[in-house]
């Protein structure tokens, strides 16, 4: 494979050498994807072929956004990892609705064993219960319904941001900001009440 500077990659991908440059870039992307996902996806070769193809399309669409602050191949591989994870997350979560997750969370909170740790003393259990009630009160008073749903889906039930965002008719970036605002509001409320996250962790026996 021909070694290229960043400028040569850009020139080749925009000029007469485009097909050869694309073939070379495809080799780099495939090698990186295989290294990153070996043992983690089924039918590795076929799967990464699809990811590499989608990556090349995105690379060509976004050539003008390359700022030259890293090697061109690192930039292209960064795109390949976003492409791959977006698709893998879509496949993993495609049959799960947001409502299902919210209901699942509601149910798990109703189960008595979810709320009780038998290794704790009655005093510790009482303290945990009071702390959980306090935290729940802050969530209800400080956050919007959308922020509460996002916390349950993403933080408690582990749904990836982009999957939750799609179901909430927004995008990953905006959902991160919505959750950041929610965390800031809760943190400020804790501070206003003379509490800290570290004290909560201590009360829950995790610090």
């Amino acid at each position: 494979m021909k070694g290229r500077t960043n400028e040569e990659w850009l020139a080749d991908l925009r000029g007469a050498e485009r097909d050869r440059a694309l073939a070379d870039l495809r080799v780099v992307i495939l090698r990186g994807l295989k290294a990153a996902f070996v043992g983690r996806v089924r039918s590795l070769d076929a799967t990464v072929e699809d990811f590499a193809q989608d990556t090349l399309v995105k690379v060509l669409e976004n050539l003008d956004t390359f700022r030259g602050e890293s090697r061109f191949t690192t930039w292209a591989q960064r795109i390949s990892m976003r492409v791959a994870y977006t698709e893998l997350r879509r496949r993993r979560w495609r049959d799960v609705s947001l409502q299902e997750l919210l209901d699942r969370n509601e149910e798990s909170n109703r189960e008595p064993e979810a709320l009780t740790d038998r290794t704790n003393s009655p005093q510790q259990e009482t303290e945990k219960k009071i702390t959980a009630e306090t935290l729940e009160g802050f969530i209800v008073e400080e956050l919007t319904q959308k922020q509460r749903d996002a916390i349950v889906a993403v933080m408690f039930q582990g749904m990836p941001l982009e999957e939750a965002a799609q179901r909430m008719r927004t995008n990953r970036n905006a959902l991160y900001k919505l959750l950041h605002d929610a965390r800031k509001k809760l943190k400020r409320r804790l501070e206003a009440e003379g509490l800290s996250p570290e004290e909560l962790l201590k009360a829950f026996g995790d610090a």
């Binding site: 979810a114 709320l115 945990k128 959980a132 935290l135 408690f156 965390r183 809760l186 800290s196 996250p197």
Partner: peptide, 18 residues
Amino acid sequence: MINPKDSVKLAMALSMTQ
């Protein structure tokens, strides 16, 4: 009520919030 496991997740997230 929020369960202890989720409370810990939330408290940890709050402790890292800037």
